[in-house]
Structures are given as C-alpha cells and as structure tokens.
Design a protein around this nucleic acid. Structure first.
Length: 277
DNA sequence: CTATCCACCTGGCGGC
DNA sequence: TGCCGCCAGGTGGATA
C-alpha cells in the first residue's frame, strides 16, 4: 500500500491524537510479521508517553519521553495504522493495539504481514539496517539535481528501476514513480545514465509536486490505505497513468496508456508523451 | 561490488 | 456459486 505520501498522511493524522498520550498497555495478537515483533516491545513502551512521530522514507518512528529506544513501524503492502475507540470493531488481521488511556486505541492491521513493528536504541537509529543505506528524502534540500544526476550517471538500469531503489531516493514506490516519469515526459525504459541534467531537474520538480499533491489529498487508496481517522485518501482519482491501461492519455489525447513490466513491476506510461527519442 | 529474480502472505477480481 | 490463476502501494535474501 503505502508510499511516502500515504505514510506521511498517516503520520500527520496520528500526531495530534497520540503525541503527549501515555501508552497504558500494548496487546500483540501475533508476532510473526516480516520480522518477529520483539518480545520486549510491551515492557519497553508500556506506561511511557509518546513525544513525537517522525517519518524516514516509508517508516514511522515513535519517540517516547525518557525512553532511550525508538519504536519503528512499517506498513508493508497492506498495513494500516489507525485511531480507534474501545467500542469500535477491530478487523481481522489486527496484530497490535496500543491503549492510549481508556478512550483511544492505536491499531495496527496488516493482512499480508509484509510490515513490521520493532524498536532500536536511539543512538543506533542511524546505523540501523533499515536506515543506514537510505538515499535522501525527496522533500528535503539534500535531494538536488546535481546529487541525483551523479547517482544516476553510474547506473545502466532503466530510470524506472533506479527511482524505485531506496538507496538512490527514499520513499518512492511504484505509483509515484510512474506518475513522476509521466509528468517529466521521460520513458521508464530510458537508461538512468542517459537522463540529461535538464531532465533530472524536471524529474525532481515532478517528484516533489506529485508527492505534495498526494499528501494534500490524503494519499491514494486503492485497496488498503486509510488515513489515521479511517477515511479514504483520494489522490487515486488524480492518477494520470497508474492503473489507467487502455485509457486515452490525458496529456496528448492521441494514444492510450500502455502497461508493461519493468523489473518485475507493472509500469504504466504513454508511449507518445514518454517516447524515447 | 552490482544487477535480477523471487519469495514472503492474504485477499480480491475476472474468467470459465 | 465455485474454483483457479493472476495481481497487488515493499523489501531483501539468494543467485549469477
């Protein structure tokens, strides 16, 4: 499910409800997610106060007052992190719940169990395997045209593949790579090292604009994504190419959107707007 | 070291 | 209605 905008939407939605709240208890229904939930999770965070929620790439990090550990949550493909009330129903595949006093419950649900809930020492965060090799976040200044051009110049793989590589840029996934390439009029098949500096600059603008618009729309809901309040995101209605195979291109009005596999992932594009010269 | 492939898991959908 | 194959917002371990 969740790429950068969906994770950021969850962070923004959760923050006002949970920051400053004490976790009165934690219930773990099953621990075998992508990585086992550490047996010490409950002991580590029960009766502690949530101080802040941060996002790094597609991970959410929960800082707690006083606690020298940071809690890490990843939503995988199908994970949801939502605020509930005790009287609400809890769907199948709800694996972890955090009671925040007697009126609010933070709930983690993940049918496919590709996500994870874990923690690490604060001082080890930057060296954690999840974060050590991550590229820059596209919404920060470190992500510049000169930086990206340099990274791409060493790669022969298609630009589509490079943009999905979290070591090149952190937070993009299949949807937003397709959408950003379309906005830039760059073919997903163009070898990374052949993308010109001008195109890289345009690509950065496209990535930033599509991500910001998606965050403003509450993310994209295909099947699983919900905002923290349980509502659907609505950026999927703004897709120009993703999941639009066979539809007339909204830009050129000449050709229909094509679907091909690139490095194992469905890749949607307009063969006219994004033609290789 | 880099580049591909594929498994991990469940559920939804289309076709027959 | 039912069964089957295919597909899905991600990641990293195995392999060449």
């Amino acid at each position: 499910m969740p790429e950068l905008p969906e994770v950021e939407t969850v962070r923004l939605g959760l923050s006002p409800h949970v920051i400053g709240k004490k976790v009165s208890s934690i219930q773990v229904q099953r621990r075998d997610l992508r990585y086992p939930i550490p047996s010490l999770l409950e002991a580590c965070f029960e009766n502690k106060v949530i101080q802040n929620i941060r996002r790094r790439s597609k991970y959410l990090l929960f800082d707690f007052e006083v606690v020298p550990q940071v809690m890490i949550v990843h939503l995988g493909m199908s994970g949801r992190l939502v605020i509930k009330a005790p009287q609400d129903t809890f769907e199948k595949h709800t694996h972890v719940t955090w009671n925040l006093g007697s009126h609010l419950i933070l709930s983690y649900n993940d049918p496919r169990r590709f996500g994870c809930v874990t923690f690490c020492k604060v001082e080890e965060e930057n060296n954690h395997p999840f974060f050590r090799h991550l590229g820059p976040d596209p919404l920060t200044e470190k992500f510049s045209a000169s930086f990206l051009k340099e990274r791409l110049s060493k790669k022969k793989a298609p630009i589509k593949t490079a943009l999905l590589d979290q070591q090149v840029i952190a937070g993009l996934g299949n949807i937003y790579v397709c959408e950003a390439l379309f906005r830039s009029k760059i073919s997903p098949f163009m070898p990374s090292c052949q993308v010109s500096f001008e195109q890289v600059a345009l690509l950065i603008d496209s990535i930033r604009s599509v991500l910001k618009e998606a965050i403003d729309a509450g993310g994209s809901s295909l099947k699983d994504h919900r905002q923290a309040n349980g509502e659907l995101g609505y950026f999927q209605h703004a897709f120009k190419v993703y999941a639009r195979k066979g539809e007339v291109c909204k830009e050129c009005r000449k050709e229909t959107i094509i679907l091909k596999r690139v490095s194992g992932r469905s890749t949607y594009f307009c063969n006219f707007c994004q033609r290789l010269e």
